[in-house]
Design a protein around this nucleic acid. Structure first.
Lengths: 354, 354
DNA sequence: ATGAAAGCGCTAACAG
DNA sequence: CTGTTAGCGCTTTCAT
C-alpha cells in the first residue's frame, strides 16, 4: 500500500517555494476523490463532462472537506471573474436603490457578484474608482448615472469590459444602454398639467445633469403651452444641490411662492422634493392640489401613501437592473446581445396631488 | 533598428501554452522600464523600496502603456484580495444606507473595494451568498444585521476571514462587533415619554429581530412606569412585516386608534413608519404632539424637516461604517485590533413631534 | 471521459 | 536596492 506513487508527495513539502494559504484546495478534493485536479474541476464546472461515478465521488469529497473554490484563482486562469461592478453617484440617494437591488439579485441568481462603487460628486474620485474597477477585471460595468470624465469613458472603452449605461438615453453610448428619455418626461409632464387646466407652473430641481434636462424640456414645453406669465420665455424655478432632500423641497416652495404667488403647479425632480413641497404646503395651510398641484419623480415606495397621494413619474428601476444584468451576462457568456439599446420608458402615475 | 534584441520575442509566441488575455501586464511595463518584473512590482507597491530613478522609469512606463494591475493575480499571489464583503438584508430599506455609504468610502480611501450581498428575508439564499463571498477570499466581511443561520456562522468562522457584525450588541459575536444596545433604546425612549407626561403609549414595529428587541424593552419599561391601562402587562402594538413603509405606519396608527382610542404616544421602529403616523394623523385631523406624540428610529435625512419635525432615535451609521472598515483594515494589515467590541451608542433627538 | 503539461499575472522567498 | 526562482489555485490546450 505504501509503495504507491504518492510517496513522492512527501518530498515536495520541503521545496523552496512559499507557504500555501492553508485552506482546502481543489488538489485536496481531487486527491480525496482519487482523480486528477482537472477532473475534479470538470465535475464542479461541467458536471456532464464526467462520469456519474466520478461526479459522485468528487461531490462527496467537497462535502467532506467543506471545499470552497477560490474564484481569484479561477478568474485568473479563465479570464472570467464573474464579478460585475456598479457605479452610483451615491448610494444615499434613494433613486437608484431599486436598480441596485434588482441588479444584485439578478446577478446573484446567475452566479455573479456585484461590486459597488460610489463616484461621489467630485470628479477626482472617479479616476481612482475606475482604476480599482478595471483592476479587478470585472465581466461588466454598470453605470447608474453618468461617467462624467471623458478620460474615464476612454479608459473603460480601452479596457474592453462590457459597459451598460443606465437611467439615460444618449445617442452615443459607450457600449450598451438601458434607459429612458428625460426630455420626453419633461414634455409629457407639461402636457399633463396643461390638460388639467394649470396656468402657472414652476419647478424645483436638483442640479444633476439628468434632472436639468427634464427641467429644461419641461420649461420649454410649458412656455409653448402658455403656462407662464405672458411674454416670458422661462418658468420660475428653484435649483437645489444634489442630493435632493425634503428640506430643500420645503425651502423651494417657500421661495417660489414668495417670488411668484401665482403659481399653481410644481414639478419636482424627486419624490423627496415633492414630499417637501407637500410638507411646506401643509405648514402654510395651502391646499394640494386645489391651490398647488405637485408632481414628483421616482415613485418611491412612500409616494402612494402620502396625503394627498403623490402624482409622480414612475421609472421601473427593477426592470433597468434586470435588463442591465442580462446584457452583461449575455456578453460575458459569449452570446450576442440582441439590441444594445433598451428604452424602458416611464409612466406618469396619476394620484391625488395633481 | 529592427535588429534589437526584442526579436527574441517572436519565437516565444509558438509555445504550447495558452493565449494570454491580451492586455498590458507587469512584464510589459518592466520590459519597457528596463527592469525585472518584481522590481516594477515593488515600484508600484512599495515605492521607497526602489531607487528614485527606477521608480521614475517604471512610472513613466505605466503612464505610457496605460497599465492597470490585475488584482486577481495580485490577490492570488499575495493572499490579499483588498476586497471586503458586506451583507445587508436588503438595500431597499434606507436604514443601512448610511453605513454602506460610509463603509464604501472608508474602504475606497484605503484601496479596498466593497462587494455587496443581499441576504434577503429568506434563509435559503443566505447559504449561496456565503459560498460566493468566501469564494472570493475577501479580506473581511461586514454583517449589517445578522447572519441568522448557525451553519453560516460556522462556515464564516471556519473560513478564517475577519468578520464585523454591526447594528447590534451581542454577548457572543463571531469575531468583531460595532453596534449599540437595542434594549437600552427601548428603555430610554419609555423614560423619555414618561418624563414628558405621556400616559398611554403604543408601538408600531417591524418584525425583524432587532426591532422586536427594542419593542420588548420599551413595552416592559412602559408598563413598569405605568404608561398602560391599569393591570395590563403589555402595551398596544402593531407589528408590520419588513421592510417598513409609510403605508404600514398609516395603517398602524389607524388600527391602534380604533382599538385603543386613549393612546397618546407611539414609538415607531423606523422613521418611515413615523412618517406614516404623521401622515395618518394629519389625514384624521389629529394634532401632533398635542394628541399623539410620535417617536421614530433612524433619524433619516428627512426627519428634521418634517412638519412637525420628528423626534427620533439617531444612530450614527456613518461611524459604524467607518469603524467597521477600520477594524477590517487593521486586521488585514496585521495590526492587532485594540478592542473587538465597539458600542457607538445612540441619541434621542428631541424635536417637535414628542 | 480522463489526464499531463503549461501557464494566467502577480508576489514571497531567498539570494546577491 | 535588484534579480532569480518558484509558486498562489485554478483552467486551458493537447493528448490519450
Amino acid at each position: 500500500m505504501s509503495d504507491k506513487p504518492n510517496s513522492v508527495e512527501a518530498a515536495t513539502a520541503e521545496k523552496k517555494g512559499r507557504r500555501r494559504s492553508g485552506g482546502i484546495t481543489l488538489r485536496d478534493v481531487a486527491k480525496l476523490a482519487g482523480v486528477a485536479p482537472i477532473t475534479a474541476s470538470r465535475a464542479l464546472n461541467t458536471p456532464n463532462a464526467v462520469s456519474p461515478e466520478v461526479l459522485q465521488r468528487v461531490r462527496a469529497a467537497v462535502e467532506r472537506t467543506g471545499y470552497v473554490p477560490n474564484m481569484l484563482a479561477g478568474g485568473l486562469a479563465s479570464n472570467k471573474s464573474r464579478l460585475v461592478a456598479a457605479v452610483v453617484p451615491t448610494i444615499a440617494g434613494p433613486v437608484f436603490l431599486e436598480t441596485v437591488q434588482s441588479l444584485t439579485e439578478s446577478l446573484a441568481q446567475r452566479g455573479y457578484q456585484l461590486m459597488l462603487g460610489q463616484s461621489g460628486y467630485q470628479d477626482s474620485r472617479e479616476d481612482a474608482l475606475l482604476e480599482a474597477i478595471i483592476g479587478r477585471r470585472p465581466d461588466g460595468v454598470v453605470l447608474t448615472g453618468i461617467m462624467r470624465s471623458a478620460e474615464g469613458r476612454r479608459r473603460l472603452l480601452a479596457s474592453g469590459i462590457p459597459v451598460v449605461e443606465t437611467w439615460d438615453l444618449t445617442p452615443t453610448p459607450i457600449d450598451m444602454l438601458v434607459g429612458f428619455s428625460h426630455e420626453k418626461i419633461g414634455v409629457e409632464v407639461a402636457e399633463y398639467l396643461h390638460a388639467r387646466g394649470r396656468k402657472r407652473v414652476a419647478t424645483i430641481s436638483g442640479d444633476d445633469e439628468r434632472a436639468a434636462r427634464r427641467h429644461k424640456a419641461f420649461s420649454r414645453a410649458a412656455v409653448k403651452l402658455g403656462m407662464c406669465r405672458p411674454g416670458e420665455q422661462t418658468i420660475p424655478s428653484f435649483i437645489v444641490p444634489a442630493p435632493t432632500t425634503l428640506g430643500s423641497g420645503r425651502a423651494g416652495l417657500a421661495d417660489l411662492l414668495s417670488r411668484h404667488p401665482d403659481i399653481d403647479a410644481v414639478f419636482c425632480s424627486s419624490d423627496l422634493l415633492a414630499l417637501g413641497v407637500l410638507t411646506e404646503a401643509q405648514a402654510k395651510g395651502l391646499r394640494v392640489p386645489e391651490q398647488v398641484a405637485v408632481i414628483g419623480f421616482g415613485d418611491l415606495a412612500f409616494a402612494k401613501d402620502l396625503h394627498p397621494a403623490l402624482t409622480t413619474v414612475r421609472i421601473d428601476g427593477t426592470a433597468i437592473g434586470r435588463t442591465a444584468a442580462q446584457c452583461i451576462i449575455d456578453r460575458a457568456e459569449g452570446r450576442t446581445v440582441a439590441s444594445p439599446i433598451h428604452d424602458v420608458g416611464f409612466t406618469i402615475v396619476e394620484r391625488a396631488s395633481a
